[in-house]
Computed example of a mutant assay.
Amino acid sequence: MNPGARKKEILSVLVRDGSVQVIDLARLLDVSKVTIRSDLDELETKGLLVRTHGGAVTAEASGSSRFISQTINEFTVQKMAIAKLASTFIKSGQSIIIDNGSTTLHIAQFIADLPITVTTSSLLVMQELMHAEKVDLLMAGGILRRPSMGLMGNFSKEFYRQIHADWCFLGAAGYSAKHGVYCTNLIEADTKQTMIQSASKVCLLVDSSKMEHLSLAKVCDWPAIHYLITDAISDEIRTIIESHGVKILVVDES
């Protein structure tokens, strides 16, 4: 079996079982454990799995991934209002991080005339700001994750570790009053955590469809978030989140 076919079979087993062990794959594919470890390492760099001691687990839940080309056309009015309010936090001369996502993307159109520094992993944010002459635009490299059209992984993490930002504008697949903030991919969650650590303040941008929605990968607990901007939130959930020191702003869509 050639290397390409072998990696395809590894991913097939991973999708079926949710996890794999080096010793089992070596026996199944009739190759050495060293070869399997090398295959798993390569697949991890592509964001397709997460290595564990003795094996690997799936990077995201089956069927959880949705492409930004779909989500960008959902709750558009709400997302625009959320992004517009978030953009009012940004002052001339500041440095900001804009996360991947269909809500955070909208910030770009409101800041194109500001003399600021923008760091992002989002190819869509890059496209929006690449001709904005007043904006110093920095791109964090990494492995392209096509559902979000964003870059992630160790290259991105190392880049974010070298910078400091006044703000990080964070996206998410869901959040829970009890459990915190979530996305669909473990490697992307790891990258988001480094973004958070590189910023003085973190603002989470989520429309109300994300409320009390859990995904595979936990990004952070509420103490890591300073502001949450949304279009609607229940009183009970608001009270719990605010008890962690998060300031919640609800946009007026009119």
Score class of each variant (00 low, 15 high):
Ala165Trp: 00
Val202Asn: 00
Met149Gln: 13
Ala199His: 04
Ser176Tyr: 04
Met211Ile: 12
Phe155Ala: 13
Ser215Pro: 00
Leu205Glu: 02
His179Ser: 13
Ala189Met: 04
Ser209Val: 12
Ala217Leu: 05
Trp222Asn: 07
Leu204Thr: 07
Pro147Met: 07
His213Ala: 14
Cys183Ser: 11
Ser215Phe: 06
Gln162Pro: 06
Ala199Val: 08
Glu212Pro: 01
Ala199Glu: 03
Met149Ser: 12
Cys168Gln: 02
Asn185Asp: 15
Met211His: 14
Thr184Gly: 10
Trp167Met: 08
Met195Lys: 11
Gly180Glu: 05
Ser215Leu: 06
Leu216Gln: 15
Asp221Asn: 14
Ser215Ala: 14
Gly150Lys: 00
Lys218Trp: 07
Lys201Leu: 11
Gln197Ser: 15
Ser209Gly: 09
Gly171Cys: 09
Trp222Ala: 08
Ala189Cys: 08
Ala173Phe: 02
Ser208Thr: 13
Ile163Asn: 08
Val219Asn: 05
Ala165Pro: 02
His213Ile: 14
Asp207Asn: 14
Phe159Ala: 11
Phe169His: 02
Phe169Thr: 02
His179Gly: 01
Asp190His: 08
Asp166Gln: 03
Ser209Tyr: 06
Ala189Glu: 02
Trp167Asp: 06
Leu170Tyr: 06
Trp167Thr: 10
Ser156Ala: 15
Phe159Lys: 07
Tyr175Ala: 07
Gly153Pro: 04
Ala173Trp: 00
Met211Lys: 13
Leu186Asp: 07
Cys183Pro: 01
Ala165Gln: 00
Ser209Thr: 15
Met195Thr: 10
Met211Trp: 06
Gly171Thr: 09
Phe155Thr: 14
His179Trp: 07
Leu216Trp: 14
Pro147Asn: 10
Val202Ile: 11
Pro223Ala: 13
Ala199Arg: 00
His226Thr: 12
Asp190Met: 09
Leu186Ile: 09
Val219Ile: 15
Ala173Pro: 00
Leu186Phe: 09
Gly150Cys: 10
Lys192Phe: 08
His226Leu: 06
Trp222Val: 11
Ala224Trp: 01
Leu214Asn: 04
Ser200Asn: 14
Ala177Pro: 11
Pro223Phe: 11
Asp166Thr: 04
Leu151Arg: 04
Gln193Ala: 14
Gly174Lys: 03
Leu151Phe: 13
Lys210Trp: 07
Ala165Ser: 11
Cys203Tyr: 01
Ser148Glu: 05
Phe159His: 13
Lys210His: 11
Lys192Glu: 12
Pro147Ser: 09
Ile163Thr: 12
Lys157Gln: 15
Ser198Trp: 00
Asn185Cys: 09
Val181Asp: 06
Leu151His: 02
Ala224Tyr: 05
Met195Glu: 13
Lys192Thr: 10
His164Trp: 07
